[in-house]
Write a protein that binds this DNA or RNA. Sequence first.
DNA 1: GTGAAAGCGCTAACAC
DNA 2: GTGTTAGCGCTTTCAC
Lengths: 325, 325
Amino acid sequence: MTRPAKRPTSTDVARAAGVSQTTVSFVLNDRPGQSISEATRRRVLDAAQGLGYRPHASARTLAAGRSDIVLLSVPDLPVGASINRMIEELAVSLAEHGLTLVTHLVSAHGRPLPEVCASVDASAVLGFEPFDQDTVEALRRLGVTVVPPANVDHSLAMRPIGRLQADHLISRGHQRIGYALPEHPGFRRMAEDRLRGVMDACTDLGLAPPVVLSTSLEIAAAARAVTGWMSESVTGVCAFNDDTAMAVLAGLREQGLTAPADLAVIGADDIPTSPLTAPPLTSIRFDLHEVGRRRAEAVIAGLSGREPHLTFASVNPQVVQRSST
Amino acid sequence: MTRPAKRPTSTDVARAAGVSQTTVSFVLNDRPGQSISEATRRRVLDAAQGLGYRPHASARTLAAGRSDIVLLSVPDLPVGASINRMIEELAVSLAEHGLTLVTHLVSAHGRPLPEVCASVDASAVLGFEPFDQDTVEALRRLGVTVVPPANVDHSLAMRPIGRLQADHLISRGHQRIGYALPEHPGFRRMAEDRLRGVMDACTDLGLAPPVVLSTSLEIAAAARAVTGWMSESVTGVCAFNDDTAMAVLAGLREQGLTAPADLAVIGADDIPTSPLTAPPLTSIRFDLHEVGRRRAEAVIAGLSGREPHLTFASVNPQVVQRSST
DNA sequence: GTGAAAGCGCTAACAC
DNA sequence: GTGTTAGCGCTTTCAC
């Protein structure tokens, strides 16, 4: 346990540098349109450095009228490492604009989002899925900028993933495609976005729409789905993600069947354990870097009152071919 | 995009309720030792409600001298869902004390922790592993309470997991135990904690110490480790976690061997996909609820200047028997 | 029982 | 070029 210590204030710095506190503020914030002599500048910077001065965030926020905190509300889902890439990119991009990203895990017993925003004095919030209307309203009243989420760009970013899954299967000769939808309600929206991609592919290539079956991660459930696809003469299935694909693989095994001979299976996300399944799982790899960067831009735009450019962020999806297809 | 709106202040509430702003503060904070008539109380509460009033966090922090923000620094590791359980519990426990938990992902290009703490004006920080001395020092100067981390209770919580893995293998007749250490440096510390548990078991039961081999998630690396164990006549291996165990299973398969006949394998964490491997993976399930609660207590203690009670948090580990052992 | 007044540490007009 | 001054919205001591 380490104890609090007394913190130097901007006035302390001013005293140490022999200038007024205002000057300190100007120098430290690099305020444009001010003319501070290089000498003064240095003295202030040195004094600050020497005292180990850090501006007091709350005081600054109070005075300036806006904080530099951006809150990201993350769903309590077993989201993979790729999400972390996006968060990282988002944090870095925001930091370049002087903003600090913190995340908050939404949980069943947790406090409502507006309350959390108020507690941290966030000036902007974003999430992975759209917030409901009441929440948005409450946030607006708090003066928080709500950055439009998933449905605008994340969603669009998901679709090419499904598209690529289907294209891959079709290019390998499969004519009757299945889709494995996860049962977990939290994945609903994302899954539908990806599914749309495979539907598009089927339509464009003149195939019948995919046979959509939902499954949990229980072997029995997956085995049932497998039976369903077989009876519809499906020969290749796109799974929402690699976890779901693993369930399908297990379901096949349970029935004494095997991939890709009896049913080809392709996952998505390319999680670290995908190469370890039996047979190794073909998957889609992509990166959310750009999505993070775009969302950061949207935050900046929102904060300065502009409408963000809703350009489409590419996730550069690509097939990682292994032996399950 | 939603725009900021004007926020009601405590003075607005005072005006609406026809009392002084001081009274509003007293009522809203339920200040002990004050005698506010029930009537006034109600009027204030109603007015606040009616205006949709929310105290301004920064102003409160500035005036009170301490914020109610607790920052959790989380490592950029593919940590599983069980970590989320702990975070959730931590957040809820802290909320009961009026504290708000936010997390920050530490990334390679990210800002240093003290800077982030300063930006959010955290009054306490915690992490999963001990912070280095410089960081602690910087944090102290900021007046942030540093809650002692992992090494104190998380570490102790990890050990029984390894213990149970070994006990399980030994109880099933294995006399020569192996340990699969992950190569990822971020897991080092936790892995060593778990390993200690298996060493204890071997010592206590009069066996030779485990044959420790490290492996990545590459099949080739895992296959090499398998060869290593076989050559040392190891018959059962405890893997650091389920991911690592999956690699070992794949390594076995690669060599045309199988679990548990040639080598029994037990994982840890019981991730959702563990039942889906071939053969289904025996694992250790536990819950970090109590760890979260304990850490919350440590935060409260630290914030009030007391040394925390370093009681041992049980994670109730238990074996989930499947066919890999 | 309730209110007046003095800050908390900082920003930003506006003087000099 | 640099300093004076007035708050930002809240807590808290002390007087009524």
